[in-house]
Design a protein around this nucleic acid. Structure first.
Lengths: 193, 193
DNA sequence: GGGAGCATGTAAGCCGTTACATGATTGT
DNA sequence: ACAATCATGTAACGGCTTACATGCTCCC
């Protein structure tokens, strides 16, 4: 259900076509909420049919068209309501820790490969979060500057502060995973050595 | 797809009925992989039809029956293959960080409520993980002792070590979330104060 | 003329959630 | 007799993944 609000969050900044939105998405909110285009387009249509957004057909060249969506008052209200309502936490479903719990059933090599890959995956994530944090410091993130340009000056500080807060949390989580897996490698060496 | 392997992991320790398995599940693997009974029973049937497990009808009282499942050779092979294969990491989908990124769009009260609840939720989780860690130290966890009783002595150390490793990782993640949300509360106080 | 990128989807299938449904057995 | 708990599911629906499908436009 959060996809809807992730899309609203981006559209609230300003009208966008599905295609542009999808690009914005992968560069900003996509870091916390992934969605492929095959999910975005239908969801936009559904949101339009619910009156949360409105699409405007625009000509593009001779025959081409694109639909540019903007958020309606109802859409803004829905977003704000969501922001003020309790978040629903879904149940854990964590393949990595599931596997970790049974590492004694496999070979030391497989255990090491699993942990090494875990480190690599989270180092990748960490690098992306770091990049976003750097962009925030420089205020050069596309999404951020787009958001800032429509944000009254008094709010810019808050906008930046919360974005930094978010990515710092993500970066820390990544570091926690990396540290954990490193300790796991040491453990494998110790008990399988 | 991991549900299947979570179930195999438990059944490999010894035969269980769907009902007992479901209880074991919520007390052990359930901490890393949640599944309701409405998902477990059909999955067991599917696994049986694939030959990964076999169910044996047992009489219970005069009219009652229960099906006790055990892992087949094919099931063991499938589990070991899974343990040795690369884990597939699913894409991020994180409602809490999604909301955090847009906290400037809501009231300070709503922001505080969100963060306070986040702390409470993760403190709950942390308490459970701590409980499991204590149980591991005492070797008094049902599941663990069940596992240990069929584990050759030489492997007991490894079994315990990896289980401790898993829950320490979970506990650290919980602490990371709690610390993050606490810093968030301080941030709210600072910029909305 | 051709390729990169713009633009928008559909379809099948799986996994998971929520709610509903039923009945037997054991202990008090 | 009654409650707790043992025991096993079905049905409907929603979200997400993967693969497929189509055509336009802009620039070189």
């Amino acid at each position: 259900m959060s996809l809807r609000y992730a899309l609203l969050a981006i559209l609230r900044v300003g009208p966008l076509s599905g295609y542009d939105l999808q690009k914005q998405f992968s560069q900003s909110v996509g870091h916390v909420w992934h969605a492929p285009d095959s999910q975005i387009y239908p969801e936009l249509r559904k949101m339009a049919s619910l009156g949360l957004i409105e699409g405007e057909e625009q000509a593009r060249g001779e025959r081409g068209t694109r639909r540019v969506y903007h958020v309606t008052d109802a859409g803004n209200a829905a977003f704000e309501e969501w922001m003020a309502s309790p978040l629903d936490y879904q149940r854990v479903r964590d393949p990595a820790h599931l596997r970790a719990a049974y590492l004694e059933t496999t070979t030391p090599e497989a255990a090491r490969e699993f942990l090494t890959r875990h480190i690599a995956v989270w180092e990748d994530e960490l690098a992306q979060f770091q990049g976003q944090l750097d962009a925030i410091e420089l205020m050069s993130s596309t999404m951020l500057s787009r958001r800032l340009s429509v944000t009254p000056p008094a709010n810019r500080e808050r906008t930046i502060a919360y974005k930094r807060f978010t990515y710092e949390g993500l970066a820390e989580r990544a570091r926690t995973e990396i540290d954990w897996a490193r300790r796991g490698l040491e453990l494998v060496d110790r008990i399988e050595g």
